[in-house]
Structure formats: C-alpha cells, structure tokens
C-alpha cells in the first residue's frame, strides 16, 4: 500500500510526535502517581506548588496525547487505510472496529474527564481526586492506542 509523499511525511512526523508524547506522559504519570493520588493531596494543591505543577504536567500531557492521537493521527491513519473522512465519533467507531482503540465510548469518556482534572476551576477536591485517579487508570489504554496506530502504519509500509 502506498500513499502520497506528503501524507507519508505527515504520518512520519505525527508518529515521531506521538512517540515522544507517550514517553512524556508515562514519565509524568510515574512522577505524580508514585502512590495513589489522594483526597488529602488534592486539598493541599494550593499550598504545594511542586505537586500542583506535577498535576498540571500530567493533565497537559494527557490531553495533548489524546488530541494528537484522536484528532490528528487517527483521521490520517484512517484515510491512509482507504477509509472515508468522517466526524470524530464515526472515526472512533471505525478505530474500534479496526482494533486500534479498545472502545469508542471509553475514548469519549477519557475526553470528558479532562475538564474535571483542572484544579484551578474544579472546586470539589472529591471530584478532582477521582478525575485524576481515573485519568491515571486510562493512561495504559491511551498509550496502547497510540502504539497500535503507529504499528499499523509501520506494518503496512506507510512509514519507515
């Protein structure tokens, strides 16, 4: 299977970016969740600048990887595989059918978690704690989806 050179270059670029973002998210995930993020930590965020920065790094990297994979890499991968361009929800359903993501509903849930992870405007520490713990639990699925998409385009010879 071949694709236009400019699409191949874009796929190569996104594959490099996504690989980097996966490594960065994994690093931040380890730094923030050495133990489970607790309610007591959420209540300390105003006073603990180091912890607040780790939370921000995690939330930023979690969201960025999801955006790059879901909004940029996935549509291009589907197009390179001969699928028609579609709305985001349809792309996620196709990705699920192709085995690139575990579940479209899970992906949408991950996306909806993000707003609840932003400590400056989530005032209830119970909600913030659960959002961060749930985000942490989704990290393996997010990285796995990214790796599957890269493996798919590599195995089809679309990128070196």
């Amino acid at each position: 299977m071949t694709v236009e050179p400019k699409i191949a270059l874009r796929l190569q670029f996104l594959a490099r970016v996504v690989s980097k973002e996966c490594r960065h998210l994994a690093t931040t995930d380890r730094r923030l969740f050495g133990g489970l993020f607790t309610l007591a930590q959420a209540e300390q965020l105003e006073a603990d600048a180091d912890l607040a920065e780790r939370v921000e790094a995690f939330v930023g990297r979690f969201g960025r990887l999801q955006d790059t994979v879901g909004d940029k890499l996935l549509p291009l991968v589907l197009s390179a595989l001969g699928e028609k361009a579609s709305a985001a929800i349809d792309n996620l359903d196709r990705a699920e059918r192709l085995g690139l993501i575990n579940s479209a509903d899970e992906w949408m849930t991950m996306r909806n978690l993000r707003n609840q992870m932003i400590h400056e405007y989530v005032e209830d520490p119970v909600v913030l704690t659960d959002a961060l713990q749930s985000g942490h639990a989704f990290v393996p699925a997010l990285i796995d989806a990214a790796e599957k998409m890269i493996a798919e385009i590599e195995s089809r010879g679309l990128i070196q």
């Binding site: 509903d105 949408m108 849930t109 909806n112 978690l113 659960d130 959002a131 749930s134």
Partner: peptide, 13 residues
C-alpha cells in the same frame, strides 16, 4: 464513589 468518571461516562453516552 467515582463522581468524575460517572459524569464523564454519562456525558459520553
């Protein structure tokens, strides 16, 4: 128990 996850799942549905 999991308010953020429940809200995110409901929003997705």
């Amino acid at each position: 128990d999991n308010p953020a996850l429940l809200a995110a799942r409901m929003a997705a549905q």
